[in-house]
Simulated scan of single mutants.
Amino acid sequence: MVTRALAEDGFVVFDPNAETLAWAEAAHQAALTVLAGGGERRHGETWFVGVDALPNASDGSVSGVPLRGPFLEHIKQPDSWHAAQLSVVFPGYPRQDADESDAAHRYRLHRDAAHVDGLLPEGPQKRRHLREPHGFILGLALNDCAASPLVVWKGSHRLMQEGFARAFAGLAPAVWGDVDVTEIYQETRRKVFDTCERVAVHAAPGQAILLDRHLLHGVAPWGAVAGQMRMVAYFRPIICYADWL
């Protein structure tokens, strides 16, 4: 069932698991310490970016608590787990930063800042290049808050993969990062908005969310939901370009 959901929908939410919950509880305590130490916040102080901020060990463990759960059966584990992103959203997300354009803010508000991970905006025109080919995206909830959930477009991974295959056709993987994929990325993204179902994905501590690396996803605005913050740890191990498609 998990394999089919990943193939057809591009994502799966795993049922609560005691070992995953133990890891989430340890990671939550570590995350609170990280937040207390400050760090970059964007969108009017409503999003803690937290890239490589979680102090997990190279085996994925936090404070000696191992990273375990049924998701391990459905991924190729990296030789070394990178420090996870600690993504924390606060009430009011997203507010507009002073240097953020009106168009970018509207896209964040009305399209959840939908994106495919690893495509980085470069230069003053923010042209998109594949600089970080990820193997998968694994999200682990660190607190129980329904606000600003992860949002995905069901089945969009297939359309995005087809678009990128066209963009890189006939080119050696070694040069894929130098290819400007902005137009085909935006064109395919519009097709996704027109044809794929937008789904809000909720998870509580003890659950894990696994996304296909090509899946279009984002974060919903906070809305009228109670809570002090919404915390998720994300692992996105890098793979070689040749394996990305």
Rank of each mutant, 00 (worst) to 15 (best):
A242H: 08
R95D: 13
I184K: 09
M231H: 04
H157Y: 07
D144L: 00
E132I: 12
L6M: 07
V2K: 04
V152R: 05
L35V: 04
V13M: 00
G170R: 05
Q29G: 09
D52W: 07
G118H: 09
P121K: 14
P78S: 12
P237N: 06
H134C: 10
S148T: 05
A226L: 02
W23G: 05
Y107I: 08
E25M: 06
F48R: 09
D15V: 00
D117F: 14
D102R: 12
V88R: 15
A165P: 02
E162C: 06
A83S: 12
V192L: 04
W153M: 03
L32P: 04
A204F: 00
L216W: 07
K191L: 06
E183P: 02
I75D: 09
R158D: 04
P149Q: 00
K126G: 11
A242C: 05
A30G: 02
L21W: 03
I75K: 11
L21A: 07
A204T: 01
D99N: 14
R41M: 12
R41F: 09
A53F: 14
D52L: 08
G135T: 03
W81A: 02
Q85N: 14
P16I: 00
V201Q: 02
R95L: 15
R128G: 10
G170E: 04
V89T: 15
D9F: 04
A174I: 03
P121E: 15
A147H: 04
H214S: 06
S63L: 08
R189M: 15
Q77Y: 06
L210R: 02
A36S: 12
D9P: 02
L86H: 09
A208F: 00
A18S: 07
Q77H: 05
L119M: 15
N17D: 11
A167C: 11
P78H: 10
S101M: 15
A200P: 00
A53V: 14
G218K: 09
W244Y: 14
V179N: 10
W23A: 05
P173K: 08
V51Q: 15
H43N: 11
C145E: 00
P121T: 15
K126L: 14
R68G: 12
V51D: 15
N17C: 08
L67W: 10
G50V: 10
V116L: 13
I137W: 00
L245Y: 03
A5R: 04
R198V: 03
G170L: 06
R106Y: 08
W222V: 00
H28A: 09
F48W: 12
E122W: 13
F136G: 00
V51E: 15
A141T: 02
A18Y: 02
A165N: 03
S156A: 11
G155T: 10
Q161I: 06
A30S: 08
V62Y: 08
F71P: 04
S87E: 12
L72H: 04
I238M: 14
T195H: 02
E122F: 14
L86Y: 11
L54M: 13
K154Y: 05
L54Q: 13
C240P: 01
V152K: 07
T195I: 01
A141L: 01
E8P: 01
S101I: 15
G92E: 13
C240E: 11
D243V: 04
L130P: 13
G218M: 10
L150K: 02
Y185H: 12
G10H: 07
P221S: 06
S58G: 01
Q96T: 12
G50P: 15
H217D: 03
V34N: 07
F235H: 09
A203S: 02
W81Q: 04
M231L: 07
L140E: 03
M229A: 13
A26V: 01
